[in-house]
Design a protein around this nucleic acid. Structure first.
Length: 416
RNA sequence: CGGGGAGUGGCGCAGUCCGGUAGCGCACGCGCUUUGGGAGCGCGGGGUCGCAGGUUCAAAUCCUGUCUCCCCGACCA
């Protein structure tokens, strides 16, 4: 992408109506636009980051055996009444709307009922199970108060997967595999070493659910980390009884602040039963389906990564999610220099390397400042001077030092 | 939802207490100079002060209502 063609622009000042560092940085760098409290639009660079995170999640869900769908955002009321969840007393942060004729509708905040209902038409036999179905789509929650930028919005992008199993054993095995897949996602995003599988309240179907909590001072959750076992306990279930169940001693655990970046639940048979979705086993007997749900916040992760990897100059994206791998700075406008920069841009682009090509008519300082703020992993400078010297200047975003390389060395360093 | 703070060109702010029809920086346009860490000088365009009502000869400024944003708390299937 040529920056001369990009409509967004960076700002020298941070927005006054945000205090969350992630939102400040992402708005200042032109990645997102705030529509209203808790609602953000994704501009070109932000959209790329979001897509990159989404793709990593998609790959791991596919590897887990998941099959992707896209569910509707408008939802009918009747299926939620069957599971007794429609009432505002049951779910109080639900956006709802109405058809012109007065028919009430729900706006997607979760999808157990719609998906189970949709699957019900196809699931008859034990041969049709298990089924692991997911989507990556917007969710809406009418939070009393939005906060923390992308980390807690009213509209957000989330991956939600639902498992439909025949037996508890089958469910348990998948549930554990899902937990492993989640950790793979966090590893790929560069936060694996600070993310803990965390015991949390399980609701009515199991003693615990599992949250995935990434350590962060701006996190909303308090967890107690067991470093040796690489697990944690959420404060909400941090009781002597639970510690005893888990075989942990209180003094082994360290209190930390964390951001919930995933949560997986066992759901039992409640929803499928309520929606009259069963399967017939090998003996011809009708059996209940055991469900699980597995959430992972894509946009929240973007906020977390923005905040987690930033420094005083701006964003510092991990290469896996960066909107581009290379920020190519062209200085000087000698015809030969322009030609050389154009050629490198074309070559890298053809090789599949994402490049933000700063071909704008700006001074060096402005371009360097933008390169830093934008957080692209590698900065390459081509100037009249480097051209004459026959070198390319390469600097990693996280490093203070730059190096002078010939073209072969540069391409090798960039894995081209 | 309770408490606190704030809404003034695209962005960041001053002006509000002590009413007299709006100012600075950034950004933007033009010109000259400059050109490796957010350039300098000059000229120029752009806002009716969140919205509605009221007081007054006169309201960004005072009064009433309302909307929005931020923070703390509560809430978070």
């Amino acid at each position: 992408m040529r920056l001369s063609q990009l409509f967004t622009k960076t700002s020298k000042t941070i927005p006054a109506d945000e205090t969350a560092r992630n939102a400040q940085l992402l708005i200042q760098a032109g990645f997102i636009h705030k529509e209203m409290a808790g609602v953000y639009s994704y501009l070109p660079l932000g959209k790329r980051v979001l897509d990159n995170i989404e793709q990593i999640v998609r790959e791991e869900m596919n590897a887990l055996g998941g099959i992707e769908v896209q569910l509707s955002i408008l939802q009918p009321k009747d299926i939620w009444e069957k599971t007794d969840r429609w009432d505002d007393d049951k779910v109080d942060n639900w956006f709802k709307t109405k058809l012109k004729n007065g028919t009430e509708l729900g706006i997607s905040l979760t999808n157990e009922e719609p998906l189970t209902n949709a699957l019900g038409g196809f699931i008859n036999s034990y041969k049709d199970l298990p089924a692991y179905v997911y989507q990556i789509h917007s969710k809406f929650r009418n939070e009393l108060r939005a906060k923390s930028g992308l980390m807690r919005g009213r509209e957000f992008l989330m991956k939600d997967l639902y498992s439909f199993c025949r037996t508890q054993e089958e469910h348990n095995a998948f549930y554990e595999n899902a937990a492993l897949a989640y950790m793979k996602v966090y590893d790929r995003l560069g936060i694996g070493d600070t993310t803990y599988r965390t015991y949390a309240s399980g609701g009515i179907f199991s003693k615990f659910s599992d949250e995935f909590q990434t350590l962060s001072d701006v996190g909303e959750d308090t967890i107690y980390v067991h470093e040796d076992k690489r697990v944690a306990v959420n404060k909400e279930v941090f009781t002597d009884e639970v510690l005893s169940d888990l075989g942990f001693k209180r003094e082994e655990l360290i209190e930390k602040r964390a951001v919930e970046v995933g949560n997986i639940f066992s759901l039992g048979t409640k929803y499928a039963d309520a929606l009259n979705v069963y399967y017939t086993d090998e003996q011809g007997e009708r059996q209940s389906i055991i469900m699980g749900c597995y959430g992972l916040g894509i946009s929240r992760l973007m906020g977390l990564l923005a905040e987690h990897f930033a420094d005083d100059k701006g964003l510092v994206w991990p290469e896996a999610v960066a909107p581009a791998k290379v920020y190519l700075v062209r200085l000087g406008d000698d015809e030969a220099t322009v030609k050389q920069a154009d050629e490198l841009y074309n070559r890298l682009t053809a090789a599949g390397v994402g490049v933000l090509y700063d071909d704008r008519d700006l001074r060096a300082g402005a371009k360097f400042a933008d390169a830093d703020l934008t957080g692209i992993p590698y900065r390459v400078v081509i100037s009249d001077k480097t051209r004459v010297a026959g070198v390319y200047e390469l600097k990693a975003r996280g490093s203070e030092d730059s190096q002078q390389l010939n073209q072969a060395e540069l391409l090798k360093t960039l894995d081209v």
